Simulated assay, not measured.
Amino acid sequence: MDLPLPDTAYDIDFDDAGSDGHAFGRPPGLRPEQWPRSRVNGLPMAHLFTVRVPEQYRCAGADLAGLSVFQSDDHVADEVEGAADTIAGGDPPSHDPRAAAFWSALTAYAGGAHPRERYREDLIGGGWVWIWRTEDELAAPPCPLPDPATKEPDDTGEDCTDAWRHDRPPRPLRLTARADDPNAGKRFDEWGKAAPGYIDMDSEEGKRLGLRDRFFDRCHFGGTATVINGGDFGPFFIGFDEKLGDPNLGSFGFAHLDLAADEIDWSD
């Protein structure tokens, strides 16, 4: 979907009275069998946050007003052979009868995943999913956790997270338009080099405008980005760190989800 370049960036903050989504908690408007699952160990992924997307950033369609984001620590998870193939639509491998519920859950997910689910892997092999949400879905009740009986019986999960271990009370979010962010609608280019027109927060002009003091380490849609070690993403993005649902970003990392390109990257 082609959109005009945004002219406003938005901060994402915790606010007990906020009505723009929530971090932690459970995603609204999903069925348990639609809860995204790891392609490595088959377990339901951690729900990080569900947030309302400002109209200027609705790259998937004007009627898709929100985003639910999930993560799995696949780079440290023990692989369950056949999980990825089953999620891709293949037949489950031969398995212990004790694991029947687990393989049935993967088969159900393969045939009934949310139609707007995007699955991506990051540079270290971690799994990410985001799902664009309608207004009706945002207003729906939270999804129940998948049945723990669908866990792979031999899984210990000591080195990674899943939906059950990550489950915490929701923290409401509030969006606030940024005042005078000069980088709204501008792209941040690779290796931390500002694209034409972008004002780096540590440039002379950026220092004059106080961009670091105003915008560093803020979760946000668009505008001046917190870039730890470079990056390359367009003007339609959401930037977040471990405050927003406790993703694994390597300690002090910051992620950028490019909403137009359907890509995610992070650096620490």
Rank of each mutant, 00 (worst) to 15 (best):
A110Q: 10
P170G: 01
E117I: 14
I199Q: 08
F102E: 08
Q71R: 12
P6Y: 12
M201N: 02
A77G: 00
D241S: 15
T226G: 09
E55D: 13
A140W: 13
D154I: 01
D16G: 06
E121D: 13
E135C: 01
F24H: 14
D13A: 14
W191P: 03
V129E: 05
L48A: 02
R26T: 04
Y10P: 01
A194P: 15
D162L: 00
F240P: 01
L123C: 05
D20M: 07
D180T: 04
R98H: 09
H75L: 10
D122M: 12
A139K: 14
T161D: 14
R168I: 03
D136M: 10
G223I: 12
A113D: 02
E117W: 07
R37N: 05
G21V: 01
L211G: 02
L123F: 09
W191Y: 13
E33Y: 09
R214D: 00
D162F: 00
E135Q: 13
E137S: 01
H166D: 13
A184K: 06
W191T: 06
D181H: 03
G234Y: 05
F14V: 01
E205Q: 15
L257N: 14
A195Q: 06
V51K: 05
L3R: 15
S267R: 15
T161I: 01
P93W: 10
A99L: 01
T8L: 13
P170D: 03
G127C: 04
D180L: 07
N41F: 03
R120S: 06
A105Y: 04
P93E: 05
R52V: 09
T134G: 04
G197A: 02
A100W: 11
S38H: 06
F188V: 06
E190V: 05
D73V: 00
D268G: 14
H220M: 14
G157V: 08
I131V: 10
P97S: 09
A261S: 14
A113E: 10
Q56E: 15
E263L: 13
R116G: 00
H166P: 00
A110F: 05
G82Y: 12
A65N: 03
R168E: 07
P170Y: 08
L3E: 11
D136H: 08
P196G: 00
G222I: 15
G223Y: 06
D16K: 13
A260S: 13
G112A: 08
D63E: 14
E204L: 08
D181C: 12
D202Q: 09
L173V: 03
G125N: 12
D74Y: 04
I238E: 02
H220Y: 10
M1H: 15
A60Y: 05
D265C: 13
P182C: 11
R31A: 12
G126F: 03
W191Q: 14
D217P: 00
P170V: 04
Y119C: 00
H166Y: 11
K186L: 15
A140Y: 09
A84R: 15
L211F: 02
Q56T: 00
D20P: 06
L3M: 10
G157Y: 13
K186P: 00
P172M: 08
D96Q: 09
R58D: 07
